[in-house]
Amino acid sequence: MTALMSLTNVSKNFGGLAVITDVSFDVPAGARMALIGPNGAGKTTIFNLISGVYQPSAGEIRLEGQEISAIPSRERIGLGIARSFQNIRLMPHLSVLENVMLGQQARAGNLGNMLSPLRRSRWRREAEELLEQMGLDTYPGEVVATLPYGIRKKIEVVRALVAKPKLLMLDEPAAGLNNTETANLKDFLMQIAATGVTLLVVEHDMSLVRSLCDHAVVLNFGEKIYDGPTAEVQKDPDVLEAYLGTRHAGKETTDVA
């Protein structure tokens, strides 16, 4: 498998605070990869570095071999990197459909598209079809601020998906969802992965990570401590130590986090 996205010796400092230190890992094309670690480990910072919200202090970030650190954040979605956010960041005053149509911007941003009405456009039809396909077609015209949390979480994924990304980065997609909603979300994400989209998922729900992801990278205090199959992650002594402390690391513990 070739690497779709690769980070090489990436570091990020905020002033004197080292948030990410010398992290390298590859995201293979077609993978369903988890990025996990205790709170404050730097997972969201990695997302912000890849999507261009932050610039790395050192190191290289490559998409299909191309260094992207110098590319403005707004152009990265066009290269195939789309993401969701830890706290839902849909546009509260836009409708479900309009939020999804905003996700098409990277494909529809030329002057002709910008100045033609969206009503009855092929963009609107595409957004409606995608919502229907994902089972979210109940209230396309509803303003998102009024919708339930679980629905908004999914709409954010659809908004990222409509950009037709190669790499879809999801920041805690299951946070705040109950068991049914999480199971539902897992099927939803498997359905997306089946279309060939590579997933990079930050998640604390280990049962979702185990059932969804084939590969995991574990961060602790901004450093990579594990990079391998998800099945092995909970047996790794460094990971156990990071989550449970040194005292417990020697014992046989099967249920971490």
């Binding site: 954040s73 979605i77 956010f85 546009m91 911007q105 990277a106």
Partner: peptide, 12 residues
């Protein structure tokens, strides 16, 4: 509504 996210969606 949100300048940062609008930028990340590919809007100048």
């Amino acid at each position: 509504d949100d300048e940062v996210v609008t930028d990340l969606m590919g809007v100048n």
